[in-house]
Amino acid sequence: MSVLAADITAGLPSDTGFNVPIAQIPALLLPALGDTLIMVGIVMTIVVLVGVPLGSLIHNLAPGGLFENRAAHSVLSWVISIGRSLPFLILMAAIVPFTRFITGTNIGIPAAVVPMSIAGIAFFTRIVENSLRSVPIALTRVARSSGASSLQIIRTAQLSEAVPSIIGGLTINTIAMIEYSAIAGTIGAGGIGYVAVTYGYDRFDNGVMLATIVVLVALVATVQLVGDRLVRATTAHAAASVRRRPRGPSTPLTRRPSTATEPTTRSATS
């Protein structure tokens, strides 16, 4: 990536603000965009795989949860808060030895994925926890008295009910990770951020700078749009009106409450 960028800029005059000809900006930005997508994709996969179980765990360790444990809850909560409290740039620098231990390097995409995942997991765990907290506690009681195991309770009475809220949080989290990937560009992780820093910032190339901004805005807007669509599709209130309308002549929403009209057939069952 950086080799390609070096080739493009090699023979260009550097005294104007527009170093890279406009025609060549896409060739510079598209591979960078690809790098950003790969980076954010890998990170978000790790974040969801770790954050959902971790968020469920911390929610259920809290008072009133399924495995109430004050000590374990405090410890876990503290660890997550520490992860949340460091600005990403500082976190990234602070864990360089750990990153090198895991990936064997401290530059490039692999090196960026480690701090991004840590920051993302801490973020997403809180989002999952917060989403689960907004699910009525009565549903956990319903599931328990219906004979559910702890895992079944978490899956059906907690996570499943919180899906729209978690997807909403996932959207916020993904956008934050796009932002972090730009910061990670400063340690040579590649991606849009790297282009913005090396061309826009270091070389005062306003054309490239502008183009990276446009790409980032478009990317974030797309993520938000997809996220909003998914939230709508997974919310019963919003989705049902679309899904169910073709079935009957009158929509259930407009029907007046009909509890008083006695049910017609009752065969002896059970």
């Binding site: 009565a138 549903l139 319903v142 008295s145 059906t156 009910e161 899906v163 019963a236």
Partner: peptide, 16 residues
């Protein structure tokens, strides 16, 4: 628990 069926106050249904 399966031998006792419980009817909760009306908010006990799963919305999704």
């Amino acid at each position: 628990r399966r031998r006792i069926g419980t009817i909760f106050q009306s908010d006990g249904l799963f919305s999704r």
